[in-house]
């Protein structure tokens, strides 16, 4: 067990060092949430066409945009893994006696650093735009934990896709095809109550919906979680566990 934790830590530490050394990616990833909140959100908050909580549309969509940034920065994680495959790094990892579950979870932890950076960024944007944030330690820690879980889910999903498609070209295609539907078939920028029945059913199967729901309850004043934090966390935890189980089985395919 101790060795398992050390292996997860070793993989995560590598990513952390790289991000600290070259934070360009974190900076370029900041542009999208700024645009969504400062442009799209500012305009839409005057439209008053969307029924949201007391705090207004911008407060409603802020957790949604955080969840979106988490999704977008994690979903292309598989590209990096395909790159590692082409260089033989994956082969080296798989020839080592390290637990394959530890390797997969280590990759998920690596993605968490990006997710947490996105969360800090969205908090800063929210502060500038005067979104009514819950500035309580418990709530903020909760948000960071949920963000970490969300990053872990989408990066592991991405890793699983990489194991199946194996080439960068195919992966880019699939990544593009998946991210937008995941985003629009969720409660990120509009409530489920506005959706037609078929879309609502799809959205209820989408893990992003539960991620947004949990963040909405924890992040802004005057909004609450629809399903309850416990349900959201349980759904996310089960999805992550299932993804890890599947990915551990197909990860060795990358080296074949």
């Amino acid at each position: 067990m101790h060795q398992f934790a050390l292996e997860v830590f070793a993989i995560g530490a590598v990513e952390f060092r790289k991000l600290m050394r070259d934070p360009t990616e974190l900076i370029s990833r900041a542009i999208q949430p700024v645009l969504w909140l400062a442009v799209f959100g500012q305009v839409l908050s005057h439209a008053r066409g969307i029924e949201t909580g007391r705090a207004g549309y911008l407060a409603f969509m802020t957790p949604g945009i955080l969840a979106q940034s988490v999704l977008f920065s994690a979903i292309f994680y598989g590209i990096a893994v395909i790159w590692e495959r082409d260089l033989g790094i994956v082969h080296k990892l798989l020839v080592s006696p390290a637990s394959r579950t530890a390797l997969v979870i280590g990759k998920a932890v690596s993605a968490d650093f990006r997710g947490v950076a996105q969360a800090i960024l969205v908090y800063i944007i929210a502060l500038v735009l005067r979104v009514p944030i819950r500035w309580e330690i418990g709530a903020i820690v909760g948000v960071l934990c949920i963000v970490a879980l969300g990053s872990a889910i989408f990066s592991t999903f991405s890793l699983a896709m990489a194991c199946i498609v194996k080439t960068r070209e195919r992966f880019m295609g699939i990544g593009q095809v998946l991210t937008m539907p995941l985003f629009f078939a969720s409660n990120a920028i509009y409530p489920l109550s506005l959706m037609p029945e078929w879309l609502r059913r799809v959205a209820k199967l989408n893990p992003l919906t539960y991620l947004v729901d949990a963040l909405r309850g924890l992040m802004v004043q005057g909004e609450q979680s629809v399903y309850g934090l416990a349900v959201d966390c349980a759904v996310l935890a089960v999805v992550f566990a299932a993804l890890v189980l599947v990915t551990v089985r197909i990860y060795p395919r990358l080296a074949q």
């Binding site: 060795q3 050390l6 292996e7 830590f9 070793a10 993989i11 530490a13 590598v14 060092r17 790289k18 050394r21 070259d22 790094i89 990892l93 080592s96 006696p97 390290a98």
Partner: peptide, 18 residues
Amino acid sequence: DGALTGYENLLLSARLYA
């Protein structure tokens, strides 16, 4: 790994190989 130092590459291997 080109983005790590030589020492860091060795540290990773040492940890994975227990």
